[in-house]
Design a protein around this nucleic acid. Structure first.
Lengths: 123, 123
DNA sequence: CTATTAGCTAACCAAAAGGTTAGTAATTGG
DNA sequence: CCAATTACTAACCTTTTGGTTAGCTAATAG
């Protein structure tokens, strides 16, 4: 139960960060943020083949970041940004380590383990 | 100058998100958040070989998330979370799409392009 | 009806990712 | 000095990734 939950959350993070690790996919997400679009519209800015774009869409869909809604011969693609929330939550734990105000980091250094044990427990 | 001092922001995001897309590397980062550690210490929790861990450390180092400081035969590894700031900045642009308060999203829908053109221009 | 269009599969390819074992270099403990 | 430890390369293997071309299906325009 706990381990199952943990695994799936880990797999979700794998998929989301993996999806974000490619510039083409990030550009597709940026395009979708302006509104839903057809596959051909999404493919238009790129110098790669349509099937290659389809594979990128598959990756985004697997990560839960894109939904496809088939209407006739047209697939309309929508952004679903919700999986980004867990990705940002992960990164957010490290904010203290880059934050301009070093008070929090100093606090951490003085009391090691306190912050880490609470927010960075093995996951 | 041999080392590329200024790396494109896109390549940096590729590297950072790619580094985060693996659970082993995320666990290594979590460990480093508790303090610097030797390579063997980092490897200890994992059922993989030491060279495999070294490769993960290489990936993290390439992404700028880890610094190695050789002291004798020991490499001491330090977290450098600063590259996460740009990763979070990227994700942050999409917060409006998952945020609980839907006012901003509604605003966006009413005036498409306004928000997107300002914050999500393909870079 | 026919031709075109939109989106996909299938099959293939090269390169990268993630792992292994074996071996090497340098440092350190006995 | 000798042996063990630490971290790393080198070489190799398998799977995944990101791309291709060719071909297929379903829907639509004329």
């Amino acid at each position: 139960m706990r381990s199952t939950q943990k695994r799936s959350q880990e797999a979700r993070l794998d998929a989301v960060f993996g999806a974000l690790s490619d510039g083409t996919r990030r550009r597709i997400l940026a395009r979708l943020a302006r509104g839903s679009a057809r596959v051909s519209d999404l493919a238009e800015p790129f110098a790669i083949s349509l099937p290659a774009v389809c594979k990128h869409l598959d990756v985004l869909e697997q990560a839960g970041l894109l939904r496809r809604e088939r209407d006739g011969r047209v697939s309309r693609c929508h952004l679903d940004a919700r999986p980004l929330e867990s990705a940002e939550a992960f990164i957010e734990h490290y904010r203290v380590f880059w934050s301009g105000t070093l008070e929090a980091l100093a606090l951490y250094v003085e009391e090691p383990g306190k912050l880490a044990d609470r927010e960075l427990a093995d996951r």
